[in-house]
């Protein structure tokens, strides 16, 4: 199981990387945790790899106004251990331990996970759920694409040939009482999930929901946000019955992924149960109940 031959280049800058990617049959490698198995099985045979992992300025976590921007080549483990992420993007902090397993998080990058757009991937789900943005550079201009419009379908994105994901912008909620929840079900802890749900909510002083976002992944061809459900829950006190009824409606209309790993009924059923749990966890956390 050896990859077919390829060339390897390591550009020194983002612009050099974009120029390199403009050459046909070139693909980006950053962490390589998804790409290398595909190469080893010869399911892909690019002419060359463009290694962006060491381009200065592409890695790092920084606060920028009402957002946290994570450089594309930031290793998942760095975000997992980051105090900034824990404090400012707690939903991402909650989801990261579900990404692959520790050794792959030591090499895998956040940008790579989003650019790969696996339907079961946790990081794109969090980014979509929070209404985040993918920062893209094509060699000439830098563009910001809403995550929802970036991830188009299984392993499909809006990224143009020769363009590069350079960062992810996660909105930070300034609210005092926020809570997050993330749940998924998979055969083994590290396997691709059958279904996953992410939720973040804010409560006012009286315990009423002022903000809410809920996303479903893995069960669907791409991560999707359930804004109608969020709208319905805002203003409520997020009682169990509110959550259950709302989720049931929100899940009923989901476009479910069809494949051989699980029946569509299962994915929908699991998505529903997980969404309820994610919202319940988020509510309880915001209320100060230990989850």
């Amino acid at each position: 199981m050896k990859p077919a031959p390829f060339d390897y280049v390591r550009p020194a800058s983002i612009d050099e990387a974009c120029a390199a990617l403009a050459v046909e049959e070139s693909v980006v490698i950053a962490g390589g945790q998804t790409l290398i198995p595909i190469l080893a099985m010869r399911l892909a045979r690019p002419a060359r790899l463009v290694d962006i992992a060491r381009i200065p300025g592409l890695a790092g976590i920084r606060e920028e106004g009402d957002a946290v921007v994570i450089g594309a080549t930031t290793r998942q483990v760095e975000a997992e251990r980051s105090a900034v992420i824990a404090a400012r993007v707690p939903l991402l902090a909650r989801a990261l331990p579900f990404v692959g397993h520790a050794p792959t998080r030591n090499r895998g990058t956040l940008g790579g996970s989003v650019a790969n757009a696996d339907p079961a991937a946790e990081i794109p789900l969090v980014l979509v759920t929070l209404g985040g943005v993918v920062v893209v550079h094509d060699g000439r201009t830098t563009q910001e694409i809403a995550a929802q419009e970036f991830v188009l379908g299984p392993m499909m994105t809006a990224l143009a040939t020769g363009a590069l994901v350079v960062g992810l912008r996660f909105p930070v909620w300034p609210d005092r009482r926020i809570g997050v929840g993330f749940h998924e079900v998979s055969t083994r802890a590290s396997d691709f999930a059958f279904a996953a749900a992410a939720a973040q909510i804010a409560l006012d002083a009286s315990g009423r929901c002022t903000k809410c976002t809920i996303g479903i992944g893995a069960a669907t061809p791409r991560p999707v946000r359930r804004d109608a459900l969020a709208t319905k829950l805002i203003g409520s006190t997020l009682d169990d019955t509110d959550i259950r009824a709302g989720v049931a409606d929100a899940v009923a209309e989901l476009e479910i992924m069809v494949d051989s790993h699980a029946s569509p009924d299962y994915r929908r059923r699991a998505a529903k149960a997980l969404a309820v749990r994610a919202l319940t966890d988020a509510r309880d956390a915001a209320r100060g109940v230990p989850v």
């Binding site: 390589g32 290398i36 080893a40 030591n106 090499r107």
Partner: peptide
């Protein structure tokens, strides 16, 4: 598994040139 800067990684998921 090998350690890279003290942390476990898959040596089959990394190219020598990286």
């Amino acid at each position: 598994t090998v350690l890279l800067e003290g942390e476990p990684v898959r040596a089959c998921l990394m190219l020598a040139v990286q």
